[in-house]
Amino acid sequence: KAEISQNSSAAVIVSTRQRGNPLLPHMRNVIVTYRDDILPDYVLGANTCAIFLSLKYHRLHPDYIYERLRQLGKGYIVRILLLQVDIPDSAICIEELTKVALLSSLTLMLAWSPAEAARYLEAFKIYENKPPEVLQGIKDTSYQGHLNGFLTSIRGVNKTDVARLKSEFGTVKDIVQADKGRLSALPGIGEKKAGRIHELFRQPFRNL
């Protein structure tokens, strides 16, 4: 379709009906262009679009969103329903909209302020073609990185504990071989945590 080819621009395309939305002044990291002929509220990439809904508005006009979604049809692959949570007792509203989103193949995103909503829209545009590395957790391969990874994989152990263990024992070997009493004598490491650390190093790899 003609519309889709035009969408692959560098800008976020905003439907003119969104004018006046308080999130727009917060859109500072992307270029914004207005059009009056797009079905969604925001076009964020060749295959990505978003519909915006404030819960306050939804409470006053409960039929609005159903009508919009009917019009939107089945276009786009990544389809966002961006909700702004601006009422105090939002549980029932969100429950209803969760159902709506599932039925219409939309992914629900929640924002608690116009600025947060704007940041979502910008992120969708900016990372349109971003490879997933950020999400795959790039490993810190330095000594410290491995040390953190190794010790914090034990339940309850945090980075402060790692630093403390390291400075107390010197080598990882000594930490692994330390007895329970000495571990639990360290500030911040109670008997429980010491027990878990001690036990994990001695737990057999194989399931019996």
């Binding site: 990291n29 990544v78 992914t107 940041r119 992120a123 969708f124 990372y127 971003k130 950020v134 999400l135």
Partner: peptide
């Protein structure tokens, strides 16, 4: 909420998840 879009923010990371898995639905 930061002023710029940074990958370290939770919101950005959720965005990336959504972009990579369009089939995935979110329940809040």
């Amino acid at each position: 909420v930061t002023d710029a879009v940074v990958t370290s923010s939770l919101q950005t990371q959720l965005t990336l998840i959504t972009l990579h898995f369009p089939k995935l639905r979110m329940i809040w």
